[in-house]
Design a protein around this nucleic acid. Sequence first.
DNA 1: CTGTTAGCGCTTTCAC
DNA 2: GTGAAAGCGCTAACAG
Lengths: 335, 335
Amino acid sequence: MRSRIEDVAAAAGVSMKTVSRVLNHEPNVREETRRRVLQVVDELQYRPNLSARSLAGQRSYTVALIYNNPSLNYLMEVQGGMLDACRANHYNLVLVPLGASRPRRMADLDAAFEHFAPDGAVLIPPLTDDAVVLEFLQESGVPFACIAPRQGEGRIGVTMEETAAVVELMEGLIALGHRRIAHIKGAPTHGACQWRFRGYRQAMREAGLAEDPALVVQGAFSFESGMLAARHLLDLAEPPTAIFCANDDMAAGCVRVASERGLRVPADVSICGFDDSPIARHIHPALTTVRQPAAEMGRLATLELLKRIRMSGTGTMVRVAHEVLFRESTGRPGR
Amino acid sequence: MRSRIEDVAAAAGVSMKTVSRVLNHEPNVREETRRRVLQVVDELQYRPNLSARSLAGQRSYTVALIYNNPSLNYLMEVQGGMLDACRANHYNLVLVPLGASRPRRMADLDAAFEHFAPDGAVLIPPLTDDAVVLEFLQESGVPFACIAPRQGEGRIGVTMEETAAVVELMEGLIALGHRRIAHIKGAPTHGACQWRFRGYRQAMREAGLAEDPALVVQGAFSFESGMLAARHLLDLAEPPTAIFCANDDMAAGCVRVASERGLRVPADVSICGFDDSPIARHIHPALTTVRQPAAEMGRLATLELLKRIRMSGTGTMVRVAHEVLFRESTGRPGR
DNA sequence: CTGTTAGCGCTTTCAC
DNA sequence: GTGAAAGCGCTAACAG
């Protein structure tokens, strides 16, 4: 049978409560007592019973990852980082996928919160900017952290300097000699869409390049939407020499369309994306893109969340560094 | 405050135990009583407290997904299917990634099992054939299900007719006129490697084609290993006209090498994979491959596991259908 | 700094 | 068919 806290207490010659104090890093335990307890814990291979702990402590030791059909790769990375942070802090991670429709989202959220009663939650885009979800969380009183929200005011979590990253990427294109640079935007509900578009405009302006509205088209972050947008752009009387896509999936769609049409990338058209998802390295030519450390962001968001769970009011919005990766899909404009 | 079983009992005019019986689908409750209880449950929005239930019932209502660095897409799909099955049965899913080294694997497993005390576990390849992991599970007495194990004897879970699927795919290649067909094998520790190779050999034999050992090379399921193997094959004095890879990542690596060398796919060389992972549709040309319903397999494996958890000795090894998808990467051998 | 006493909300056992 | 009482293993509140 598994040993209980009572057994540890008896073997260490202290009360259950003292053992509990040691295990929960509470103050008011003499150093010697603490050491003795820890030794017995080790000898007896004692592991606290999660259910008993939760029941008595009115906490679930669970953190929810709330998501809504984003890129699987991105989700997987964030999830991995969160898992690390959770394990390190003896927290459990519960996945909460939300349905597409608004009432469905509410029902899913509600069911998951009723069932798991998470102590906190992490939101990833585009849910970080979903009014319905945000209101639910605010009302529930459960602390939450956001990853890359459009609006980070008064929130905790992690952000990246997306605009700055895009400017850097665009400066690279401009330095290569590109003047007609197109942009395929992401889904408008997604915070990143805004930041990345802003970076595009800023770089164009700073380089003294006129912005041609015909060169900015709406995408939806999917491979297919990238193909559609690419066809549109390449059909223009004066097609762009470079296309900056708001994510890699759309950029891959562009590359595919270019290949189908017999265009060489980057000789005929340069293409770049954002995210550095696996597809960026797997297609030919490999995509120039911006790497965002999704796993690290998941880990950090979780750590900030745990701070807030442990002490209300703590936790901040931390910034992580990006990295612009120039690979094969961009080059000098051809002729 | 959240309502408790006591509140429901009081409102329905029965004992707590009767409510418990209804909620757990136990026998010995009159139909009328059951109906009344359920109505009160609905009115009071009663949701059982997981921790209390686990503590009293000596069960965690948790199922573990044990994995070890497989393809992320595959993992994600299986995970999604398991999540569905878990939600539908009010079970929790806990992710248990295992480290690379053998002692590390044991430590990870042990820690996760001590901490979460899962009621059951699902293994995915290549862990389905890992002696250390299997022994641990057997000794722990925790029921487990396997997805696509090499050896399904006496186990429960899900399998696919991998060999038959490969034969079908190979027959397609042969019908197109291919005679020199190469095979890039998967990692030898992986059960699938064996089944897929077997299908390759069987199809060659049945078509009366001589097997050239030079055309069978070892890969490791990664994109990079596919590139290496492809270079080797395409450098042969008499290169193959078609290459069947044990998974899509390696096939994508082959396509990339072919593109780099200016070879046209499929005019100069046909390439096909296995899995129908997203990359299969995202590269150009899109890959001919075999779709395995990973999400469905995750769901079914979980359902079999839950059967066994609920009644020892029940649960079986179920088979799911595959689908061979002929797309753009295969065609008649050129010249 | 340490211990005692009550529960947390549910299931189990056994009696009716 | 149904119910009463006794825990599951832990933490909270308070007393020392």
